[in-house]
Amino acid sequence: MGILEVKGVNKRFGGLQALGDVNLSVAENTVHAIIGPNGAGKSTLLNCLVGKLIPDTGSVMFDGQSVLGRAPYEINQMGISRVFQTPEIFGDLTVMENMMIPCFAKRDGAFELNAMPSVGSQKDIIERAESVLEDMNMADKRHMHSASLSRGDKRRLEIGMCLSQEPRLLLLDEPTAGMARADTNNTIDLLKQIKDERDITIAIIEHDMHVVFSLAERITVLAQGTPLVEDTPENIKGHPKVREAYLGESA
């Protein structure tokens, strides 16, 4: 029984069957990649996991509890953090403030009217945020406006913000999309380090096979809204069905 169990999920947009009978099980403390050609339904599936979309039928269980019908913030409070395709950070705030907000969310929950004490008096939050910034190698950028960070640093910050909440499941939506090769390799190294150092389950959606094969322990191939195969990276590489889905039948 995995930490994330998706059973019989269907999602239809008008005449388009985006997801057809998807079953997926992500085992605890593994890195599980979901790959597939454009339009395979990867992002739709991800949106069903985080509460942005509600599947027409089927169930999504996280750690034995259903996530369906819950708002994104409730699902996050259950222990699922999401990294977006384009880094979603608080661009008007400094790097340090960006890092403190998830720490507050972890400590105080979804809402807390903490209007009289100053931010500077919240020593535990500051310590926590600083230690995560150290881990991310961003301590020297703490006073910078986060909007002025490079693409790679924004991604690093976003991952750090998610990790500061100590999630049990980290969802990554094409974390290296649009990145230069050097930034991509940095991100891969960072994710490897996270996987080695922490008890965390990572589910990753990715186009870039280099990223997938450097990180994943299990791979699910999605095509036209249905899982084709699920296997280890070694077996996926030579799988005829996968080649067919990516390259067309004649290959």
């Binding site: 913030y73 996050n76 953090s81 979603e88 608080f90 809402f111 807390e112 004490p117 100053s118 939050i125």
Partner: peptide, 28 residues
């Protein structure tokens, strides 16, 4: 001034900056 400098004030600025990130950071 107290509200501006408080964690609550910081959350309000975060609302202005990126509501999507707020929601996916466990904040309502």
């Amino acid at each position: 001034i107290r509200i501006f400098r408080s964690p609550f004030g910081m959350m309000l600025r975060a609302v202005k900056s990126n509501q999507q990130r707020m929601n996916y950071t466990g904040l309502n």
